[in-house]
Each structure stands twice: as C-alpha cells, then as structure tokens.
C-alpha cells in the first residue's frame, strides 16, 4: 500500500476545481435550505441551465462573458419559474416540483428534439477557449511541492474557482448579517409569524431561491469550463444529494459550512477511492473480492455510513452550533 500516493490523490481532488464548483453550488443550496428553509431537491438543474446557458451562447458565436451573464440570468429565471407556483404552498410542493423539474430539464436537454440547441447527448465542447487564453500560467508547466503538483491549466481554473467561492462566501455573509438575512431566517423558523410581522414572505423566499439558483448556475459553469465540456448526463439527480450531504456535513445555516463540507467530503471520497484502488492491486484477497464496479458501490456505502455516524454524534454538522440544533421546533 502506497499511503503517500493515496493521500496525494485525495488532496489533489480536494483542492481541485470540482471541489470548488461543489463548494460554490453548496453555498447556493445553503442559502436556500440552510437559511431560508426551502427544500430545493433539484439544485443540479440550476447548475445545468447555468452551464448550458453559457455554452450555448458561446456555441452560437457570443463572447464568453455574455455567456456567463446569460447563464446566471437563466438560472435566476428557473428559480423564478419554479418558485412562482410553489412558494405560496406548503414546503413539500417546492421539493416535489424541483426534483421533477431537474430531471425533466435534463431529459429535454439530452433529447434529439433539443439537438439544434444543445447537441443532445453529445453536449457542447470547447466553449471556454477565451477563458484559457487569459491563463497567465504556461498550461503544460507543473506547479506544486514534491509529488503534489498540478498543471498550469488546472491551477488557473482552481484559482478562479476558489476566488469565486470566496466571493460568494463574502456576499452570503454580508446578506445573512443584514436585516434581509434576519427575515430569511425568521421565515425558516415560522412563515406565519413572519407574515404577521408585516414581511412579504413569498417575495423573500423567491429572492432566496433565485439568488441560490444563480450561485448554483455559476458552479455549473466552473464545472463545465474545467472540462471544456457540457453533457446532460453530468447533471444527474444524485449531484443534488451530494450537495445536501456537503451542506449538512459542513453545517447547514453556517457561513463556511459549504466550503468545509465540500473539502471534507471530497477528501474522504477520493481518499477512500484511492485506498480501494490500491488495496485491490496490492492485497490479494481484496482484489478477488472487489471488482472495480463493486468498489464504486462500497465507496458510496462507506460515505453513507460516515453520514449516519455524523448525524448520530454531530447532527448540527462540523461548524453548526449544538445549542441551536438542540432547540426543538416548538
């Protein structure tokens, strides 16, 4: 067993652009779920429309910056359309609508009917050239310490991704420390009481859904830019649930929870992954027992087990306050 390379694989995945994208997406979900109490079970759809909004714009000859703006606007529009009919109703209506809409959108995007726009299952590639042309690092050069190295190309996406993550942490922090954020939290606690205090609960919920959605859209774009590729099947429903794991793991309703959650989740996930690949190769009986396909399942089982242990011993997540978690609803 090569423990050094196992940890290096884990750390590389943890600091990489995918983790940054998940962290950003989780910041959006945390605003909706952790602060406003909105059960958005289709967060991946915001990532999808953000990424496709950008990719399609560039594909049709538009500049990348316009694509990014359009991606954000489309994600906000999706939040508006999903929220308009459901946010006046009980919380579970939003949950059902978002989970169904997310799958419906993915299936429409991959259908042959939408091919002129989305190129169906093949997706759109090579839309981020102008992003990489801004890269100050020689793309093939290696940066890092010892065997912990990334290419200049990766480094550029990482720096931009984590900078955006930091920016959103700052924005959400500023929002949640403001009276606006106080109303959002009040709505999470009791909508009727907040209404009785003269607050337009519907408008606030819609705002939270749209802002969280826009942040999710940006996360989708970073994921797409990193791969220079959008395909519909990169936006499966389980991504939404991985994001929930990240938010709850880090501590729902905390400012840095999504970042910590994403980092811890990705580190554990990829370290376990590398560990199992190593064990299969080096330990005879493990290799006999676990086919690569089975190893993927076992990895998820271990993650699920970890989540359960966390819920038992630290239901408030890594950064959540225990005092707050122990308050019962009424």
């Amino acid at each position: 067993m090569d423990w050094g390379s196992i940890f290096i694989d884990g750390i590389l995945a943890t600091i990489g652009p995918v983790t940054a994208a998940y962290a950003i997406s989780a910041i959006g979900l945390n605003l909706q779920f952790g602060y406003a109490g909105l059960l958005n079970f289709g967060h991946v759809a915001f990532m999808l429309v953000g990424a496709y909004g950008m990719a399609i714009t560039v594909d049709f000859g538009g500049p990348l910056w316009l694509g990014i703006i359009i991606g954000i606007l489309v994600a906000m529009l999706l939040g508006f359309l999903l929220g308009l009919p459901t946010l006046r109703l009980r919380a579970d209506y939003l949950a059902i609508t978002t989970i169904a809409a997310a799958e419906a959108i993915r299936l429409v995007v991959r259908s042959s009917w939408a091919e002129p726009l989305t190129n169906g299952v093949f997706g759109i590639q090579g839309f981020a050239d102008s992003f990489f042309s801004l890269n100050p690092f020689p793309p093939a050069e290696l940066y890092g310490i010892g065997s912990l190295v990334v290419t200049g190309r990766k480094l550029w996406v990482m720096i931009v991704g984590w900078t955006i993550a930091a920016l959103f942490v700052f924005v959400v922090h500023r929002l949640m420390k403001s009276p606006w954020g106080r109303v959002i939290k009040a709505i999470r606690e009791d909508e009727d009481a907040t209404t009785s205090l003269g607050k337009n609960v519907f408008a606030y919920k819609l705002q939270a859904l749209m802002i969280g959605g826009a942040i999710g859209g940006v996360a989708g774009m970073i994921l797409a830019i990193d791969q220079q590729n959008v395909t519909p099947d990169a936006y499966l429903p389980q991504i939404t649930f991985i994001l929930y794991v990240i938010v709850i793991l880090g501590g729902a309703g905390t400012i840095l929870g999504p970042i910590v959650g994403a980092v811890v989740f990705q580190f554990l996930f990829f370290t376990i992954d590398a560990l199992m690949v190593n064990a299969q190769a080096d330990i005879g009986w493990v290799g006999d027992l676990l086919t690569p396909a089975a190893a993927g399942q076992v990895k998820l089982v271990l993650v699920g087990l970890g989540m359960m242990v966390l819920m038992v011993f630290r239901p408030q997540g890594i950064l959540g306050s225990r005092e707050e978690a122990l308050i019962d609803e009424r």
Binding site: S178, R182, D192, A193, G198, I327
Partner: peptide, 27 residues
C-alpha cells in the same frame, strides 16, 4: 410562534418596520 433559532433580540428586530436593510439592495 417564537422564532426559535433567532435570539430574543432578533425576534424583536425582525418586527421593526421600514428598515432599508431588509431589501436586497440595502442589505
């Protein structure tokens, strides 16, 4: 209907009228 996971002071402040920080732009 107390807003359980808000402090007592925040419960009071959320009821105040005409705070421009309650708008997104003001926030």
């Amino acid at each position: 209907r107390s807003l359980a996971r808000l402090t007592v002071m925040d419960n009071m402040l959320v009821a105040a009228k005409d705070n421009k920080g309650e708008g997104l732009w003001g926030a």
